[in-house]
Design a protein around this nucleic acid. Structure first.
Lengths: 93, 93
DNA sequence: GCTTAAAATATGTTTTCACATATATTTTAA
DNA sequence: TTAAAATATATGTGAAAACATATTTTAAGC
């Protein structure tokens, strides 16, 4: 299904959270987190935003022409200080 | 309400589309676009993605620590060639 | 200006699906 | 093996999305 939901799942696992923990913090039942991650649900924006927030992510609308540049920033090591992402462009994602 | 919906509205206007046109292309009734833009609705991810796509936008999950860098790229003129966004950082948003 | 028709946006009702609650299954580890 | 932790499934309820209609806005003609 949707790529976004897989990102949510791996972000949750990276943070060593269970569906239950995430759900509790998000104010959503564990069963939803399950449905969302398995991709059989078309979740609402507010749910997406809340879950993302708890995983230190944010929902943004990105102009398509800027996606390559932004992907390069993101793929260049998440948490720590950035390596120069402005090496004009080598390999999209 | 939510900032994202305002972005959708201004993107639509920037493209000189009516709610009806956008809705038709997105496979959504004009009445939804109205509700979405006025912010009295918590829309579903698939709707958001479809609308965004038609406005040459894409829904992305961004690590919060990278938001400043990404915002600077975005605010530096949407469509055309980028001015140096890597002037380390002056003014978040 | 005023009128009117069409375009654009908003509102009212019904239907469908996300979300809530409860329960079942699977997985982990003791 | 078994109990608890984690994830998945079943069913009921409220809100988003479909459908229809009303209102507002725009711009033409007079």
């Amino acid at each position: 299904m949707d790529n976004i939901t897989h990102i949510l799942q791996s972000a949750r696992k990276a943070k060593n959270m269970t569906q239950g923990e995430l759900g509790a913090k998000a104010g959503l039942p564990q069963s939803h987190i399950s449905q969302i991650e398995s991709g059989n649900i078309d979740l609402r924006l507010s749910s997406l935003q809340e879950i993302a927030r708890l995983l230190d992510l944010d929902v943004m609308l990105i102009p398509v022409n800027l996606k390559p540049a932004i992907r390069s920033i993101i793929s260049g090591k998440e948490g720590e200080a950035q390596k120069p992402a402005w090496r004009v462009d080598e390999g999209e994602l």
